[in-house]
């Protein structure tokens, strides 16, 4: 069973991962034309495949818009824009995945945004259901509000460096924003989260 879960997670993480900039309006138009003609000729499977590609194109477009909205700096950490990464929508990976990193080790951070993914509902359930949250609560976790969104803050200590890392998960409808910062404190990560335009991201990603 563990093997099965591993395979699914690996596929989900790397299934259709592409560097930013590969999808374009031409792709969308081309896939739209294929979808229309295939459907018109009764080739349903090809029509469906083209539509999957269209969803992928759209998620890439949405992801690019989101990347434009993300801060270019968190505290003293500057964005590593060459490491920006987007995962397209359809196929095995599921949903939109936006990844951006800041700074360099040992002081670094990252923002991840996933949307429309089958993984979100379970995370949302844990974060937003008091009973589940209570059952899974530990002393290194607490719920806070960021720009009005109920969020889960998790603290961890690196056993080698003894430095404190924080992860903040912010669910918004069908979108989950995760901010991770190494060697930080609660105040810094909360301030960083407040610089992310959450409402705009939720709106464009929905």
């Amino acid at each position: 069973m563990k093997n099965l879960i591993r395979i699914v997670l690996v596929l989900a993480a790397f299934g259709t991962c592409l560097p930013v900039g590969m999808a374009s309006a031409q792709d969308f138009d081309k896939n739209l034309a294929i979808a229309k003609s295939s459907y018109g000729s009764g080739d349903l499977e090809n029509a469906r495949f083209a539509m999957e590609q269209m969803l992928h194109d759209l998620d890439m477009a949405i992801g690019k818009e989101i990347l434009k909205m993300l801060p270019t700096q968190i505290g003293a950490m500057k964005v590593n824009d060459k490491e920006d990464n987007l995962t397209g929508g359809s196929g095995y990976a599921g949903g939109l995945f936006v990844h951006r990193t800041y700074g360099m080790a040992p002081k670094s951070g990252q923002i991840e945004i996933i949307n429309n993914s089958p993984m979100i509902s379970s995370i949302n359930a844990i974060l937003t259901t008091p009973v589940l949250g209570g059952m899974m609560r530990d002393e290194n976790q607490k719920q806070i509000k960021v720009q009005g969104y109920k969020s889960l803050l998790t603290k961890s200590v690196n056993s080698e460096t003894a430095k404190t890392n924080y992860e903040l998960q912010i669910p918004m409808n069908n979108t989950l924003v995760t901010l991770r910062i190494e060697d930080t404190n609660e105040g810094e990560i909360t301030a960083a989260a407040n610089n992310i335009p959450l409402a705009k991201i939720a709106q464009i990603a929905q």
Partner: peptide, 25 residues
């Protein structure tokens, strides 16, 4: 919707189209 850069709307419409095709399949 795509031409208006309303990507969320465009995605919803494609999902609906795909739903129609999958039901036919």
């Amino acid at each position: 919707a795509y031409k208006k850069s309303s990507y969320g709307e465009a995605r919803y419409a494609v999902q609906q189209a795909m739903l129609g095709v999958e039901l036919e399949i």
